[in-house]
């Protein structure tokens, strides 16, 4: 029983933080994450304000940039990896993401359907949602 393989706690870089390698390596990981996240944020703000890009594609591009930045935060700040000691963390995260997608996409889908199928008569329009 020299080496016991426990799962890694979320947010930890190694199983035993006391015996971690030098802190400079940890600082480097956080700094790389900060630089990538700041770059993605500035690209997002540029994309939202520029007139150079095809306008209908901009919301999709912003969504992709946002999801990419969340991934950068998870990998570089929360140290989520694909390693076997991280399986439980990743599975819990995947379940959370599933619920988030169901709630958001489901609400948007159902409400768009209701807006299309239950359009009120014209004289009632100003009491309801206005486009």
């Amino acid at each position: 029983m020299t080496e016991i393989r426990f799962d890694r706690a979320p947010g930890d870089r190694s199983v035993l933080p006391e015996t971690e390698e030098k802190t400079s390596a940890g600082v480097l990981v956080y700094t790389i994450g900060l630089v990538i996240a700041a770059t993605l944020t500035s690209i997002s703000f540029w994309v939202a304000n520029t007139s150079l890009l095809w306008a209908p594609g901009i919301p999709l591009g912003l969504a992709v940039l946002g999801i990419a930045q969340m991934g950068v935060h998870l990998v570089f700040f929360l140290h989520i990896t694909t390693g076997p000691d991280n399986t439980n963390n990743v599975l819990a995260l995947a379940f959370g993401v599933l619920i988030v997608i169901l709630v958001v996409a489901g609400s948007l889908w159902i409400m768009a359907n209701l807006n299309n199928n239950m359009m009120p008569p014209l004289e009632l329009m100003d009491l309801h949602m206005q486009r």
Binding site: A9, P10, A92, L93, G96, V103, V104
Partner: peptide, 19 residues
């Protein structure tokens, strides 16, 4: 590990509330 994993699950439920 147990404490951090439990808090991780709480955070995911918080994210679901934000969703």
């Amino acid at each position: 590990i147990v404490v951090a994993y439990g808090f991780w699950i709480f955070l995911l439920s918080d994210v679901v509330m934000f969703a």
